[in-house]
Design a protein around this nucleic acid. Structure first.
Length: 407
RNA sequence: GCUAGGGUAGGGUAGCUGGACAUCCUAUAGGACUGUGGAUCCUUUGACCCGGGUUCGAGUCCCGGCCCUGGCCCCA
C-alpha cells in the first residue's frame, strides 16, 4: 500500500466541509472590508524566496531544479508571491491595493502539532498606504476575522520603532542577536552579549510595559511616537481587543513599523495562529519602495484550535424503489434535484428494506416508489424525523420538502 | 538537525514475562422480520507498518528504515 508523504494529510468529507465553512467565514470577513482574492502559482523561482528571507531557508523549502535546469521552489508562504504579483502590475493599480489570499504552502520541516509539510495560509496585504489608519485597519481586519471563526485567541500588538530606538547605538549584528533574545524572552542571554545593565533594564521594562505612557517614558520621545499613539487610538475606535507588547521582534529586517501576533489556546508549542506587520518588500522584487502591511493566518492551526465540529447536512432525500418503480424513480429524483434538493438513489439493487435502512442513516426524507406508485404516477413521501408518510403527487412532494427548510 | 513515546481490520482496542485457527466494539456486504426502515438476530469482509536478526517457534525480544503523536531548534 502506498503511503502519503510525510507531513501531508487526506481530508474526508466531514473534515473538508468543516474547513470550507471556516474558509468561507474568513472570505466573508475580509470582503466586508473591500479585500479581494488573488491567486499565484504553487511554485516560483527559488530566488523570490531567498531574496526575501535569505539563502538559509533553502534548507526548509521544497526546492529543486526543473527539467530546464531552473531553480524552483514550492511556495513556503504567500506574501512574497503576492508582492511579486503586485510589482508586475504596480504602475497601473489603483492605490491602495487591498488583496487577500488563501492557498497551500510547503515547508520541509519536522511535523508536529499544528505543523505540516503542506499547510494552508489565509492572509491579506494592504499595499501602498502608509498611515496609522492603514496599520490599524489591517489589525482590525485580522481581529474581526479571527473572532468570526470562533477561535479563542490573544492579539499582541507592538512596534519595532520602540526597541530600535533603544538599540540604535549597537552594531547591526549585535542588534539582531539582542532582538532574537528578546523575542524569546531569554533575558539571561542579554548579559552574555555584553549589554550594560542600564540598557538591559530598559529593554525588559519596555517589554513589560502595559501602557503607551509607560513605554514612551522608557524610550523618551521618538519620531514615531505620534504615529504609534494614533495607531493605538484608531485600534480602540475599531474596538479591537489587544495587549500591548513592544517585545515582539520578528525575525527579519524588512519589517518597518507595527508588528502583531495572535496566539490561540490549546495548541501546544505551535500556538501562533497569525503574524503580521508593516514592511517594505516590493523594491526587492524590482519595484519601487512601497509601504505595505499585511498578515498571514495559519489556517490549519485555527482548525486544530476549533476542534471537532458538527457538520450540518443539507436536507437530503433518498429515492427508494422496487424494480417496478426504478425508471419512474429517475424522473422523481430529477425533479427534486431541479428544486435544489440533494437527492440520492440506490445503485446497488438493494432490497427495499435495505434501501430504507440506508436512508435512515443519511437522509431526512424517503420517497418510496413501487409498482403501485409508478402506475398511478404518485409518490409516497416519508418524513424520517416523524415517521409519517403520505402518497401524493410529485409536485406536492417536492414542494413539501422544499418548504420544510434545512434541518 | 536533536529528543521522548508510539504503530494490531476502515475507525477504536485486547494480547506484548515468546507457543495452537489473534480478542472485543464499531464499520462494511448479505440475509431474516415476506412494500416501511434506524432495533434485534444470523452470516460475511477485513489487521499484527516494512526489512533484517535471535529462536524449533516472533504481534511479542534485538537492529535498521518508514510513518504518527509530542517537546526542542527553526519559524519567512
Amino acid at each position: 500500500m502506498i503511503q502519503k508523504p510525510r507531513g501531508t494529510r487526506d481530508f474526508f468529507p466531514d473534515e473538508l466541509e468543516a474547513r470550507r465553512r471556516v474558509e468561507e467565514t474568513m472570505r466573508e470577513a475580509v470582503s466586508r472590508w473591500g479585500y479581494r482574492e488573488v491567486s499565484t502559482p504553487e511554485f516560483e523561482n527559488l530566488e523570490l524566496f531567498t531574496l526575501r528571507s535569505g539563502e538559509g531557508i533553502i534548507e526548509e523549502m521544497y526546492a529543486f531544479q526543473d527539467k530546464g535546469g531552473r531553480d524552483i521552489a514550492l511556495r513556503p508562504e504567500l506574501t512574497a508571491p503576492v508582492l511579486r504579483m503586485y510589482v508586475n502590475e504596480a504602475k497601473v493599480l489603483n492605490k491602495p491595493v487591498r488583496w487577500y489570499y488563501f492557498g497551500d504552502c510547503f515547508r520541509y520541516e519536522r511535523p508536529q502539532k499544528g505543523r505540516y509539510r503542506q499547510f494552508w495560509q489565509f492572509g491579506i496585504e494592504l499595499v501602498g498606504a502608509d498611515s496609522a489608519m492603514a496599520d490599524a485597519e489591517v489589525m482590525a481586519v485580522g481581529y474581526n476575522l479571527l473572532k468570526a471563526t470562533g477561535v479563542s485567541f490573544e492579539l499582541r500588538i507592538g512596534d519595532l520603532a520602540m526597541m530600535r530606538s533603544l538599540l540604535a547605538d549597537l552594531e547591526p549584528d549585535l542588534q539582531k542577536k539582542v532582538r532574537a533574545c528578546l523575542d524569546k524572552r531569554d533575558y539571561g542571554a542579554l548579559e552574555e552579549l555584553g549589554l550594560g545593565g542600564d540598557l538591559a533594564g530598559s529593554l525588559t521594562a519596555l517589554i513589560e510595559s502595559k501602557t503607551l505612557d509607560d513605554a514612551f517614558a522608557i524610550t523618551g520621545s521618538i519620531p514615531e511616537e505620534t504615529r504609534i499613539r494614533e495607531t493605538f487610538a484608531i485600534l480602540d475606535a475599531h474596538e479591537v481587543q489587544y495587549v500591548q507588547n513592544f517585545g515582539i521582534a520578528r525575525g527579519l529586517d524588512y519589517y518597518t513599523g507595527c508588528v502583531f501576533e495572535a496566539f490561540a489556546e490549546n495548541l501546544g508549542a505551535e500556538n501562533q495562529i497569525m503574524g503580521g506587520g508593516a514592511y517594505r518588500l516590493a523594491h526587492l522584487f524590482g519595484g519601487e519602495e512601497t509601504p505595505s502591511v499585511g498578515f498571514a493566518i495559519g489556517f490549519d492551526r485555527v482548525m486544530v484550535s476549533l476542534g471537532e465540529q458538527e457538520v450540518k447536512r443539507p436536507t437530503t432525500v433518498a429515492v427508494a424503489t422496487t424494480p417496478e418503480g426504478r425508471i419512474f424513480g429517475i424522473t422523481v429524483a430529477a425533479a427534486f434535484r431541479q428544486a435544489g434538493i440533494r437527492t440520492i438513489a440506490d445503485l446497488m439493487g438493494k432490497s427495499l428494506s435495505a434501501q430504507l435502512s440506508q436512508a435512515a442513516k443519511h437522509a431526512d426524507y424517503v420517497v418510496v416508489i413501487g409498482g403501485r406508485e409508478a402506475e398511478a404516477g404518485m409518490v409516497t413521501l416519508r418524513d424520517l424525523a416523524t415517521g409519517s408518510q403520505q402518497t401524493i403527487s410529485l409536485e406536492e412532494a417536492v414542494a413539501g420538502v422544499v418548504g420544510s427548510g434545512t434541518r
